[in-house]
C-alpha cells in the first residue's frame, strides 16, 4: 500500500526527503491499520478478514505445533521424552493399555501427570457419555492481548469444528472459536468475552457465567442467576446448563464451585464468584466434544467401546 502511493506525484516541491517519506509511510500505515480494524470490527460474525485469518492459521498453526513439540522435552523437566509422542498416538488404546503404560513410565512424574490427565479424560468420556477427541495445548495467547485463548493441535482434519465444547479431566475449559485443518483456537471460559450457561448443582437454578479476563490464580467467573430471589450458597457446584444440540456447550460438565456471594446494594440481583476447577495456567491435555460418528485422523474416545 505504502509503496504504491510512494510513486504518486509528490505535493511537496522537489524530491521528498527521507523524513517526509517516513512521515508519509507512517500516515498511510496508520490509515491501513485503521481500515483493517474497521473492516474487522464492523463485520460481526463474518469478517472479510476471516479468509486471511484461515490462511495465516494454516501456516502459523502447524509452526506452533512443531515448536511446541520441539520444546516439550525442555518443559518436561526430568521426563523420559521418548514416550510422550507415543502416548499421543496410542490414545485410543489407552484404556486397555493403562497397566502397561503405567509400568513403562512410572519413573517419570511428568509423564505420570500426563497419563493421569489422559486417564481422567477417558473417565470423563465414560462418565458423561460424550465422544471426544484428545488434543494438546500448543500455544497460549499473551495476557497483554487482554484475551484468554489457546491453540490446540487438533483441527478440522480430526473433526474439530467451531462452537464445540472443550474440557479436560477437571472440568470445562472453553469452546472452539476457529478451526483450521490442523489446529483450533479455543476461547477459555475466563475470557471477558465468554458467557456460559450454568446451573447450580443443588437446586438446579440457571444463570450465566462470565469470565473476568485473567487466567492467573485469581482467574474467576461471575455467576449471574436468572432468578434473583435465589441465593447461591458457598461451595455450591456449578455445571454447564447446555444449549440446543450442545452448541456451543454440552450439558452437565462441571465448571467450578461458588467461592463467595456478592450482593450489590443498588441492584437486587446477587453475583456469585465461581472458582473454576480447571487450572488455566497449566493446560495440557484437553478433550473436544465431537459427534459420535466423527471420522478423522485421530481416534475418537467413545464411552463403553474403547477401540
Amino acid at each position: 500500500m505504502a509503496r504504491r502511493s510512494g510513486s504518486r506525484p509528490s505535493r511537496w516541491s522537489g524530491p521528498p526527503t527521507s523524513d517526509q517519506r517516513a512521515r508519509r509511510t507512517f500516515a498511510l500505515l496508520v490509515l491501513a491499520a485503521l481500515t483493517v480494524i474497521t473492516l474487522d470490527a464492523r463485520a460481526g460474525d463474518s469478517s472479510p478478514l476471516d479468509p486471511v485469518r484461515r490462511v495465516v492459521g494454516e501456516v502459523v498453526g502447524p509452526a506452533e505445533s512443531a515448536t511446541a513439540t520441539a520444546f516439550r522435552p525442555f518443559t518436561d523437566i526430568g521426563g523420559a521424552f521418548r514416550t510422550n509422542h507415543g502416548l499421543r498416538e496410542d490414545i485410543a488404546r489407552l484404556t486397555s493399555e493403562n497397566a502397561t503404560l503405567r509400568g513403562r513410565i512410572a519413573s517419570s512424574p511428568v509423564d505420570q501427570k500426563r497419563l493421569a490427565e489422559l486417564d481422567g479424560l477417558t473417565r470423563t468420556v465414560a462418565d458423561t457419555g460424550y465422544s471426544m477427541v484428545a488434543a494438546r495445548v500448543v500455544a497460549m495467547g499473551p495476557m497483554q492481548s487482554f484475551s484468554r485463548t489457546v491453540t490446540i493441535d487438533a483441527g478440522t482434519s480430526s473433526g474439530v469444528r467451531t462452537d464445540m465444547t472443550v474440557l479436560n479431566s477437571d472440568g470445562l475449559v472453553g469452546r472452539v472459536v476457529r478451526a483450521t485443518r490442523s489446529n483450533a483456537t479455543v476461547l477459555l471460559i475466563v475470557d471477558s468475552d465468554s458467557v456460559v450457561g450454568g446451573r447450580l448443582g443443588t437446586d438446579l437454578e440457571v444463570g450465566f457465567l462470565r469470565g473476568r479476563g485473567s487466567a492467573d490464580n485469581t482467574g474467576r467467573l461471575t455467576l449471574d442467576l436468572v432468578d434473583d430471589s435465589v441465593e447461591p450458597s458457598k461451595d455450591d457446584l456449578v455445571v454447564t446448563w447446555g444449549s440446543k444440540d450442545g452448541v456451543p456447550y454440552v450439558a452437565g460438565i462441571p465448571i467450578g464451585r461458588v467461592e463467595s456471594v456478592v450482593s450489590t446494594p443498588r441492584q437486587s440481583s446477587r453475583l456469585a464468584v465461581v472458582k473454576p476447577f480447571v487450572d488455566f495456567t497449566a493446560l495440557d491435555v484437553v478433550g473436544v466434544v465431537v459427534p459420535k460418528d466423527t471420522e478423522g485422523d485421530r481416534p475418537v474416545l467413545t464411552a463403553g467401546a474403547p477401540k
Binding site: 491499520a33 483493517v36 480494524i37 473492516l39 486471511v52 495467547g141 484475551s147 489446529n183
Partner: peptide, 19 residues
Amino acid sequence: GLLLDLAPPADHVAGRWAL
C-alpha cells in the same frame, strides 16, 4: 502487528496490534 493480529490463538479485532 498484522501477524500478531491474525495468527492463532489471537481472537481480537484485527489491526489493533498493527496500529
